[in-house]
Design a protein around this nucleic acid. Sequence first.
RNA 1: GGAGAGUUGGCAGAGUGGUCGAUUGCGGCAGUCUUGAAAACUGUUGAACCGAGAGGUUCCGGGGGUUCGAAUCCCUCACUCUCCGCCA
Length: 423
Amino acid sequence: MLEITRIRTEKDSIIEGLKKRNLDVAPTIDQILDKDQQWRSAKTDLEAIAAEQNQLAKQIGELFKQGKQEEANTAKIRTGELKLKETELKSLVDGLDQEITQLLYTLPNVPNELVKAGKDEKDNEIVFEDGEQPTFSSEPLAHWDLAKKYDLIDFELGVKVTGAGFPFYKGKGAKLQRALIAFFLEEADKVGYEEYIPPLVVNEASGYGTGQLPDKEGQMYYVNEDDFYLIPTAEVPLTNIFRDVILPDDQFSIKLTGYTPCFRREAGSYGKDVRGLNRLHQFDKVEIVRIEHPDNTAKALEEMIEHVKGLLSKLGLQFRILRLCGGDTGFASAMTYDFEVYSAAQQKWLEVSSCSRFDTFQSNRLKLRFKNQDKKTQLCHTLNGSALALPRIVAALLENHQTPEGILIPEALQKFTGFDRIA
RNA sequence: GGAGAGUUGGCAGAGUGGUCGAUUGCGGCAGUCUUGAAAACUGUUGAACCGAGAGGUUCCGGGGGUUCGAAUCCCUCACUCUCCGCCA
């Protein structure tokens, strides 16, 4: 959520910035500012009344003590009048407050200056490319065929036991899964991310904290009985650790990582995009989260990108990095880099990571602040990224590393799998 | 699942209708003393909002009520803890 103070002072740059998302928010902003004006004026009046009431209450107490019943009762009449007015003003103030918040909820984050205007994924910029396209002696199989051939993943069994999008991993398929998690966590550990194992369900407040609620409610599984949500990403519990926290100035940078399964309803997905591992309702992911001083955010994002690059290189996958255009950048994000690996058999790019800086957009909702040098509280910056999401990595590994002798496991992974090929 | 006890400032913990944003202790910060540190002593130390400022308002788990006045009384919801039961 954008800060109201920022809207007051940076109206024009916000309107300009959000044009990169193909949005014209000028009417909304004007509406907000108009209501904000009313709100402030009503609030001032309300506070004046409250001040007078406080004053009178004190006097009345004094008068009672001195036994001046008459005078006290006269004063009481005045408080009665004030109370009526107060009730009226209060409902006005509260109403405006809610309307403003509702409007604020509709405004996405303002894109960073590096972000180009654009409509959808077609306008994303490729900023980096690396790795070789693999060559095959015969037509490569898609990962769902490979999974069947080597008995690594059983999709039908998942359908039987749960439903579509909840596969079973078996044998070496399961081991590969476990190896990737261990590999990713160890790599994150090497560069200073502290490992957490968070809860997999969160309460409503946490959903609001990271912005899944109220707008993306339908994307999370909901446990009715206890009002819990299954996490769609470890970002939710890891970032909410810092909800309502005021950090000392010297605590930065805070770097966390965690492996969790992620649960997504993905309502409305269909067709070839959901085939095999391409889109699941439950998948594994290692997430990295950073809490930063605003001055360090750009550097932090660079570091995260380097980290993810390293992972993909060590896995021997061809990949590219995209800087998302305004229209494709997530609601809460100020700038997002997507990592895509090339899937040789499907002949398309698969998104495996997304690294974003949110600046104060999340911390504003979270009330995550720090004491700056002037001893003032100031909002922190938050960032996060996948490092990495497993299913599409598995898809690419299987497809790109298939040979007549079996699927070759990248060397970096072998110490975790305990085998060097799947045959 | 049954019974009970709680929820107050960074933490501990007082406060049962007015002068309480809140005693006190610890912690933090600043200073005195010291070559330095520790100890001791002194002072200081919550957040949000309105206002150009002076200043004002709000917050003692959330919401509602009683009252001129609520941390304190009433209602309600949430959460936490303890004991018993069940279970990994």
